[in-house]
């Protein structure tokens, strides 16, 4: 499965968003859509487990998790063997 589809699924199950993830564009601001700090941490941990990666400290910020596209790019950088799209 392409990374971005996996990311969408993980956001749906761990993002605790008040809106349906399917309605969000790849570049939509997840914080504006209701992503809380706690939920973004849970999202980070779920992504690490799914893709068997570890986000370096430099990536542990709001920007990395700001949109479905941003998250997918970060994952693609850390898991080069995954299918990007």
């Amino acid at each position: 499965m392409p990374i971005i589809e996996d990311v969408r699924q993980i956001i749906a199950s761990h993002g605790k968003l008040p809106v349906d993830v399917a309605t969000l564009a790849d570049d939509a601001d997840l914080y504006a859509a209701g992503l809380s700090s706690f939920a973004s941490v849970q999202l980070m941990l779920a992504l690490e487990e799914r893709f068997d990666i570890e986000f370096p400290e430099t990536m542990l910020n709001r920007k990395t998790f700001s949109s479905i596209g941003a998250i997918s790019s970060a994952v693609a950088e850390l898991a080069p063997d995954e299918q990007v799209a």
């Binding site: 700090s37 706690f38 973004s40 980070m44 542990l60 709001r62």
Partner: peptide, 14 residues
């Protein structure tokens, strides 16, 4: 922990 690193960065950025 590491999750905390993210919380801390987020707290600073905001």
């Amino acid at each position: 922990g590491r999750a905390g690193k993210m919380m801390g960065n987020s707290q600073r950025e905001q």
